[in-house]
Amino acid sequence: AGKSKVDDEVLDDLEDVLVSSDVGVATTIKIINRIEDRVARDKYLGTEELNKILREEISGLLSETNSGEATDFVVPNKKPYVMMVVGVNGVGKTTTIGKLANQFKNRGLKVVLGAADTFRAAAIDQLQVWADRTDVPIIRQEMGSDPASVAFDTVQKAVQMDADVVLIDTAGRLHNKVNLMKELSKVKRVMQKVIPDAPHEVLLVLDGSTGQNAFEQAKQFTAATEVTSLAVTKLDGTAKGGVVIGISDQFQIPVKYIGVGERVEDLQVFNKIEFVDSFFK
């Protein structure tokens, strides 16, 4: 009886940790249940074993579709490999693109940026700064021009330039705005006129300090663009980004990258174990 009391306490503490990391009530209950089952099965568990199981069960939810299996910034052998970056306002799309451009370029890949946020004030100038910083070409048009046309242009020029990687920046938009989401579907579609299977990757950027609304973001962006991977930004602060556990689990989308600062080198390949461990720090 003494033993199970310790376990209850540990589980209560765990619940607090998970909920305060934005994991959400439903996913927290799911994790606690999985751990309770394990505890019931393997009767005599020390706290240390319990901690290990806990990390296993949580990271198990981070999508069986190889979240955090990648160990480096690599892209599949498609030329050019087209990545479109989407997400709500201010999450870190443009910055993540700058950081990715740097990583791919350092690995000897020829990178091209597409400035398809033609709406937000100085969005093109911002991407231009990142292009200059990382010394990669950028395809841009005037502010206010059609983002789909910019994306088309970018992919077409990338083919002509024999580029390896194309990163398309898009304007931030809230997922409940039907017309803006339609526009995004169109941006995606036009690229297929140049490369039928483009974009090869749709990266949804989530702000690590976002709470449960991130579920709705994942749902709507997936509906509009078939999101294939996730990046979680701003994890250099006190926010934990726990909501991605449930998202990765529910939508079976792997988490690929995390943003840990504003500098060009502040992007890391996602690591499940480190991610889960950060909840307990």
């Binding site: 702000d207 300090s209 934990k240």
Partner: peptide, 12 residues
């Protein structure tokens, strides 16, 4: 502050 902020809002 972004109204989508989660549990970390208190700390910040």
């Amino acid at each position: 502050v972004d109204s989508m902020t989660g549990q970390d809002a208190v700390n910040t």
